[in-house]
């Protein structure tokens, strides 16, 4: 029993960390730009496919591919922001929602056209034989996923807390007009935020894609989870997104393990309903600080 709980918690943490990584980007984009980015799931999907293309077709080293895939998706994100979102600055949130939904449909179908509906598996440089640690079973790909995820989250955290650019991001988030008056090029901050968010989603896509399989519609479920996490943690809350992701992952694991796996996805939504009823601004919504 205890072993099972432990294993389920670890399973949950693995999934939860990638939920967190996806959600951090989503919550940053929302908090900073007031854009609900429905394209986020597609950045996640593209991350997986770029890594697949680089490893399977171009035979690049796996770790190099991970980095290149993330950078490539960031480039895509940057272009999307400049071309589609920048001209809509100051327009209502509904307008940008329509644009990001449209872009999401476009990218998903483009991937379907390019890579086809056949699921793909990213070739890994190590064997995925199970590693038995006491009562707990894990694989390298999962350990790697969790480590890289936390590495990325810490990196982004440091960037936001320590660098001048990060401070400018926080300033924009807290008082946009004052940031403008302080000479912060808010347009550049927006572009950077969106690009960074896309990169984080891509990172999650590459890592989960390495554990599971990749296919054009893989972003649908990812963005659904990311929205749950963002609501759990409070819209625009960085720390909230990380905790929310881990909470969702572990609750799902335990719920599926001890209640019923048929209700696994329902658990996330029950959590959201409870949060919205009792803490409408999210678990960590009060501290609206980046």
């Amino acid at each position: 029993m205890l072993t099972e709980v432990l294993q389920q918690v670890i399973n949950g943490l693995v999934m939860g960390s990638t939920y967190a990584l996806t959600a951090v980007g989503l919550t940053m984009i929302f908090g900073m730009m007031r854009v609900v980015n429905f394209t986020h799931g597609e950045f996640y999907m593209l991350g997986g496919f770029f890594a697949f293309q680089l490893t399977a077709s171009l035979h690049l080293n796996y770790y190099v591919s991970v980095v290149v895939a993330i950078l490539a998706v960031m480039a895509v994100g940057f272009v999307c922001e400049r071309v589609l979102l920048a001209p809509l600055r100051g327009k209502s949130i509904d307008t940008t929602v329509l644009v990001t939904i449209g872009l999401s449909i476009f990218l998903q179908n483009l991937a379907l056209l390019w890579w086809g509906p056949t699921p793909k598996s990213i070739p890994l440089p190590f064997s995925n034989t199970p590693l038995q640690w006491g009562p707990v079973v894990l694989t390298w790909s999962r350990i790697l996923a969790v480590s890289i995820t936390f590495g990325l989250i810490v990196l982004v955290h440091l960037l936001i807390q320590k660098s001048l650019l990060g401070k400018a991001m926080r300033a924009t988030f807290q008082e946009k007009d004052a940031a403008l008056l302080a000479g912060v090029d808010v347009e550049r901050i927006y572009a950077f935020t969106f690009t960074l968010g896309a990169g984080l989603a891509a990172g999650a896509g590459v890592l989960l894609g390495s554990i599971f399989l990749i296919y054009p519609s893989m972003g649908n479920i990812a963005i659904l989870k990311a929205f749950i996490v963002v609501i759990l943690g409070g819209m625009g809350n960085f720390i909230g997104a990380i905790c929310g992701g881990l909470i969702l992952g572990v609750t799902e694991g335990l719920g599926a393990g001890f209640v019923s796996s048929g209700y696994k996805d329902a658990i996330g939504f029950v959590l959201v309903i409870l949060i919205l009823m009792f803490r409408p601004s999210g678990l960590f919504g009060k501290a609206r600080r980046l």
């Binding site: 001048l164 300033a171 008082e175 940031a179 302080a182 000479g183 980046l290």
Partner: peptide, 27 residues
């Protein structure tokens, strides 16, 4: 051209030093 906005509009979550340093972002 620098505006000192009405109601101060500092960045409440940043330290005094960070607020000041952001003022020189455009330098």
């Amino acid at each position: 051209i620098t505006q000192i906005p009405e109601g101060r509009q500092l960045f409440p979550g940043l330290t005094v030093r960070q607020n000041l340093l952001l003022g020189s972002f455009s330098l």
